[in-house]
């Protein structure tokens, strides 16, 4: 089997790929309702799907905060240090 061919096939079928991805996302949350929890440290350990929400919020927060820092403060032209 050729890895390149498989990758190209996947890229040509992104719609199917997306559906599979959504199904997996849903599945990880659904499973969370049924697993046994032995370890209680934080209150959110008992909330099914907490880390899904937390992961999503983390991602958005990181992007928004970093982009804002870059835009208003840190970003310079590539020639900045050569001038």
């Amino acid at each position: 089997m050729n890895i390149g061919k498989i990758l190209e096939y996947m890229m040509a079928n992104t719609r199917t790929l997306k559906r599979v991805a959504y199904a997996v996302l849903a599945l990880t949350v659904v499973i969370d309702f049924f697993i046994e929890r032995h370890h209680h440290v934080f209150f959110w350990d008992d909330i099914p799907g907490f880390s899904a929400v937390y992961g999503f919020i983390s991602c958005v927060l990181i992007v928004v905060i970093s982009k804002a820092l870059g835009h208003f403060w840190l970003e310079r032209s590539e020639e900045y240090y050569n001038d």
Binding site: A21, V63, G70, W73, E75
Partner: peptide, 25 residues
């Protein structure tokens, strides 16, 4: 959950995440 939902966030924001020809301080 953490990782896959980060992935979801990425693909929702992907238009804003490309590299720009800048350096950061």
């Amino acid at each position: 959950q953490i990782l896959l939902f980060t992935g979801l966030g990425f693909f929702m924001l992907v238009k804003h995440l490309g590299g720009s020809p800048m350096i950061s301080l």
